[in-house]
Computed example of a mutant assay.
Amino acid sequence: MSSPHQLTCTTAIVDADTARIAVAGEIVFGSSDALLRVVTELLADHPVRRLRLDCSEVTFCDSYGLGTLLAVHRRVGAVDGVLHLENRPPALDRLMRRTNTFQHLVPPAEPERRSDR
């Protein structure tokens, strides 16, 4: 049975230290395990120092998806890497702020956008 929630992850190795995954769709209970699987396989093959998740095409993230992003953060940290959530939609920033996970998922060097709309 296929999930009604579509999530695609497109991986690219940028250089020896950096990989990028373009995430598109909903990071939710029915789909986010695929993201964690892609990250786990990538790190097994290429333990990069920087993993950039391009979230520009993320349409929704629920609490399970947020838990998945935290698990991705832990996996990247386990190989002494840094996770960068790039091009975050305002709704994702609001979710992370409301759940006090923003400081865990966004490195301090990255500015926090104000999107209280």
Rank of each mutant, 00 (worst) to 15 (best):
E26C: 13
D116W: 12
I21S: 00
R113G: 09
Q6S: 14
E110G: 00
S31C: 02
H5G: 04
E86L: 03
S3F: 01
D93T: 14
T10E: 12
S56D: 13
R94Q: 14
R50L: 08
F29W: 09
G77K: 04
C55T: 09
A71W: 01
V58M: 11
P111W: 07
R98V: 14
R114P: 11
S31N: 02
G77F: 00
P47K: 06
Y64R: 14
P108M: 06
R117Y: 15
L53S: 15
Q103S: 15
D15P: 04
L43N: 00
T59G: 02
Y64W: 13
R114E: 15
L43W: 00
H46L: 06
R97K: 15
L51I: 06
V72W: 00
R50A: 06
E41H: 11
T40M: 01
A91I: 07
R114V: 15
L66F: 06
R94T: 10
C61D: 04
G77Y: 00
Q6P: 07
R49I: 01
P111M: 07
G67T: 12
H46R: 11
R75V: 00
L7F: 02
P90S: 11
E110M: 03
D62W: 04
D33A: 11
D93A: 14
D80V: 04
T68W: 00
T8G: 07
R49Q: 06
V79L: 00
D93L: 10
L36A: 10
L43I: 02
G81C: 11
S31R: 01
V38G: 04
G25M: 08
V14E: 10
S2K: 08
R74N: 09
L53V: 13
A24S: 11
M1L: 10
F29G: 09
M1H: 11
V79W: 00
G81K: 09
D45I: 03
T18D: 04
E112R: 10
R113A: 11
D33P: 07
T10C: 13
T68M: 05
T101S: 04
H73F: 12
E110T: 02
V72T: 05
F29I: 12
L43T: 00
F102I: 12
T59P: 02
A91P: 03
S31V: 02
L85W: 03
A109Q: 14
S115H: 14
S63F: 14
D33K: 10
S3A: 04
C55R: 07
I27H: 03
H84P: 01
P89T: 08
P90V: 10
D54G: 10
V38Q: 09
L7I: 02
A19T: 07
H84T: 07
P108H: 06
T99E: 01
P89K: 08
A16Y: 03
T99H: 01
R49S: 05
R88A: 13
S32Y: 10
P108Q: 07
R37D: 11
S32N: 11
V48G: 03
R52W: 09
D17K: 10
D116S: 15
R88I: 12
H46M: 08
I27S: 03
T18F: 04
T18E: 07
C61N: 05
E110Y: 01
I13G: 01
